[in-house]
Write a protein that binds this DNA or RNA. Structure first.
Lengths: 201, 201
DNA sequence: CCCTCCCTTGACCGTCCGGTCAAGAGGCCG
DNA sequence: CGGCCTCTTGACCGGACGGTCAAGGGAGGG
């Protein structure tokens, strides 16, 4: 849907994206009806279809915006850090801070992965994330900081640890993002054999 | 729903569980209608509601059976292996073989995690998995095989790496389960600093 | 052979859903 | 002040959905 939007229109669209994202995360995408969204916002149904072609398009825009925002946060955290391993650590840390502030979007992304209508969009963003990390891993290998291996595979491992810990330690147990990041970084760098830098609790 | 089932009835129920699981994984739980399931099986709608109270109950039974089956596979693989680290490795290996043979169930479990109606059931099974692994980790710590740390946190890391690699390397790229297991085990034990045992591809 | 009870049929029901649209409000620019 | 274009309203539609149920088939124990 392409439309010339006034500042007021842009603001309305932002409200819709935000409100819908929270409802979707809370009640699920399919169970949340368009009627429910517009009623919750106190507007007519026409408003929804003025800004979006369909419920599906709305979710796609939410997902795209979320992935863009997360990537921006990661890149801002990395900036021009010269050490590739520190870049990885900062990326993990930034991701956990972002997930802490955007829990509902995490749920939504996880759902989207399981629905064939949205999975392609998620996979695109996932590939970008992997490539980002893999670049730093590759540099770390080239400079002899870590032993050689497929950088993309290692990137997937890092993402897996981060996501898993985010879900349990951060979102479910409410641990501070930096502590979770410490755990994730330590495990990624040294695995089970790490030098006892994990807080034993 | 409690009903006295003849062998024929039990077989019918098994068919329903299996067929529905595949449809749910392929098209999503909500988009797949009961009508679609019974039509696909060539039976009347009454059959469905003879065996299940609702679509929701059906999914719950699918999830419960899947988690039970996975756990059984893991325990069979571990058997009476004395070395706790080898037990962990065998558990990872068994999980990847199971996920390889039950891809559709993996998708389904992932979806269930995002839906508040099913997430509690998944969390129950997840907690069991964590406790299982954590026990071996604890033993490895006690015998000085690995440095001390919260065993449950480490268990979550292991699960995160395994799940993430399963999704990408196994399901998406079609790599053999044992190769993926090698990668996962190596990363879990030594992280990025592992001694080059990861196949560089 | 018949009776019981497991199993199956498929028409039917009320509800809700995504999406449409004719009508109109309202702000901004000329 | 007038007209245009963005934005909003909410009744409306066709159809699909989860779930019900009266009726009947059929296997197997007595």
């Amino acid at each position: 849907m392409e439309r010339r939007l006034t500042p007021r229109g842009l603001e309305r669209k932002r409200q819709l994206l935000d409100f819908a994202a929270r409802r979707f995360a809370e009640s699920g995408f399919h169970p949340t009806s368009v009627a429910e969204i517009v009623q919750g916002m106190g507007v007519g149904k026409g408003v929804f279809y003025w800004y979006f072609d369909s419920k599906e398009e709305l979710l796609l825009e939410i997902l795209q915006a979320a992935q863009l925002d997360l990537r921006r946060a990661q890149q801002a955290a990395i900036e021009d850090e010269p050490d590739p391993l520190v870049r990885i650590e900062r990326g993990i840390r930034a991701s956990l801070h972002w997930l802490d502030a955007n829990r509902h979007l995490d749920t939504l992304i996880q759902f989207a992965r399981t629905d064939e209508a949205f999975a392609p969009a998620i996979r695109r963003g996932g590939r970008v994330a992997v490539t980002d990390i893999a670049r730093h891993v590759q540099e770390a290998i080239d400079t002899g900081r870590i032993p050689p291996a497929d950088p993309e595979v290692l990137a997937h491992c890092i993402l897996g640890v981060t996501d898993s810990l985010a879900r349990v330690q951060l979102i479910h147990r409410g641990q501070p993002p930096d502590e979770v990041a410490d755990t994730a970084v330590s495990f990624c760098f040294e695995g089970l054999t790490r030098a006892g830098s994990l807080s034993a609790r």
